[in-house]
Design a protein around this nucleic acid. Structure first.
Lengths: 339, 339
DNA sequence: ATTAGCACTCGCCGGGGGTGAGTGCCACCC
DNA sequence: GGGTGGCACTCACCCCCGGCGAGTGCTAAT
């Protein structure tokens, strides 16, 4: 028995099932794919594939459907990411380039991805952690309140308000603003700690509390909060076919509202050689997502991605197409942000 | 025939139907409500109510369900907004007061409302249009790029980047920053036009393009873009019962993704005397929302609301409870933002 | 190793009768 | 004239059942 043919059979089953949403039997398999053998032979292969856990039967007299394990093998070894056509790539590029600012870029990217994949699309905001600082601005807005505005190389602006008692705005703030920008400009968070510590030491003792507070806020803002923002589009695609999920899509929607869950998932996902990561069905431990698959890719600088984008849909999805779209959008997003 | 009793019957039908999600017949009506007459009498009343268009029969041998018109009468004349209990109010207040900044307030409010109503909750960000300006900050970030940061009385911070050729940052920007803050501080958009025009005229002719551009951005930012932000929670509640919507919830989810549609809807809705506005079923022209009702209320200053919040669910919803929750959250939101 | 043949399983579909909730109407009562 | 009991009627829902057919696993032959 040929192992190659068995894999061909698995590939054919996945492709047919994704297309038709119906269990696929041995006869249609030989009709639709040039397998060169009879249905009986296929049946033997299918029995072996089922034994190995790659496919399953919904009930006795039905065809086979792929298991999570079957999809995994398909994704890892049987499917090639099919590149998009030139016009498609052109359309993506043009659409994204029309964006007027970062929010618009992200918004367009997520809608585009939802449209392309016909799945739920998720875009994580560029992470400040790995993004270099461009400018810090301090604005006193009341006797005891100081607004800290942080501008990054990616064009992102974050603001925080710190409350400080007995602040001498006239004297300290301009100096702090100047020093901060000298020490911070162009640096990434990871390179900031030492220079800022040095800078703090240079201030007079009575000003140190204020300085420390501001430094803390700058570091804090870059480190945490902004990594947590993401936008989503295409949730309506979940309701496309009633048969896609057992019962309701409620648990999926609930999981999607937990941004924390999604963010953890995205950051956990390691990319393979093609730059795309895939989680299939129960590989997602989260209870609401055991019937879904997620395709994700990083964007930003090539070596070290700033953030990730992803597409989420039923395990029975067009992996090749989805992976191609996710990768393409991630690449154009990187290009836009770099330019 | 007593008109009062007919209205009692309608109220009883709405209440039972909302509770059971099943067409309600004459017998259960007299069993569950102290109507004091026999089922036969109720049947006559029901025939009259159906004739008048307030209720309908799904099929010949079924009970009655309310029509949109029936819900409308119920909301307008038959239901009192039932105030929340003291512990409930306390919990709302405490939960919202724990918020650390505006984003957090809005996020907590929307989740809270979704939880309370078991519907989809929507919160519109406080509108800058009616919010007074606190401070404008100008930050040159490159030779030809100027960052404009706008801070409002509600603590909102908006930023825009304007591109200007041949900007003399050293000279003009500080002056413009100073003048802007003198002329704009504490004013609402509606009061800004004249002072800004005057201010612009005071600048040297060669600086006018820059000044006009910045003024334009300030006015623009306050007028439009920021009114368009809203957050949503509880979409999973749409999938609670499969029977709530004919077929799928897909059109509803699609409509909900069109923020523009929701924003228009919210701003169109006029509040009644109780401070709550209700749109029922087909009163929402938007095609995806003809099977849903929306309960909305403004928040912010009492006279002139800054923005609106709303709860959206199937027309068959608990109007009294939803209206109470929406009103309560709106009030506490107003209080938090004022404090 | 592959294949044709064959018996077997079992989900799906359509038809049909029974059931019961609910109605509309009519005659009657106060 | 409004309210009521009685009654025939309608019709969605449920369950049962038999036929159908897709698909399988097994076996024997090539």
């Amino acid at each position: 028995m040929s192992d190659d043919r068995r894999l061909d059979v698995l590939r054919a089953i996945v492709e047919d099932y994704v297309l038709t949403h119906e269990p696929v039997g041995s006869r249609v398999l030989v009709e639709r794919h040039a397998l060169g053998v009879s249905p009986a032979t296929i049946r033997n292969d299918m029995a072996a594939l089922e034994e190995a856990g790659y496919i399953a039967q919904p009930h006795t007299s039905a065809g086979r459907i792929p298991t999570d394990k079957g999809y995994r093998l398909f994704v890892d070894r049987l499917s090639a990411v099919k590149p998009l056509s030139a016009p498609e790539r052109k359309a993506i590029s043009v659409f994204l380039e029309e964006a007027v600012d970062l929010d618009d870029v992200v918004d367009r990217a997520v809608r585009l991805l939802a449209q392309l994949t016909q799945q739920v699309a998720v875009v994580q905001y560029p992470s400040l952690r790995r993004s270099a600082l461009r400018h810090v601005e301090l604005v006193p807005v009341a006797d005891d309140r100081l607004l800290v505005v942080i501008i990054t190389e990616t064009g992102r602006v974050e603001q925080r308000i710190v409350e400080v008692e007995g602040m001498d705005a006239e004297r300290v703030v301009p100096e702090l603003r100047a020093r901060l920008n000298v020490h911070a400009a162009g640096r990434r968070l990871i390179d900031l700690a030492a220079p800022l510590e040095e800078m703090t030491a240079a201030f007079a003792p009575q000003d140190q509390p204020l300085v420390r507070q501001v430094v803390h806020v700058v570091e804090d803002t870059l480190a945490e909060s902004t990594e947590e923002r993401l936008v989503m589009a295409g949730t309506a695609n979940l309701a496309r076919t009633g048969t896609d999920f057992p019962g309701t899509i409620r648990p999926v929607l609930e999981a999607l509202e937990e941004n924390v869950v999604l963010l953890r998932l995205l950051t956990e996902m390691a990319e393979d050689s093609a730059g795309v990561a895939v989680r299939i069905g129960r590989e997602n431990q989260h209870v609401g997502l055991t019937e879904t698959s997620i395709v994700a890719a990083g964007y930003g600088a090539d070596g070290e991605p700033l953030a990730r984008i992803g597409a989420l849909g039923p395990t029975r999805m067009d992996y090749a197409g989805t992976m191609a779209s996710v990768r393409a959008v991630a690449r154009y997003l990187s290009r836009i942000l770099a330019g």
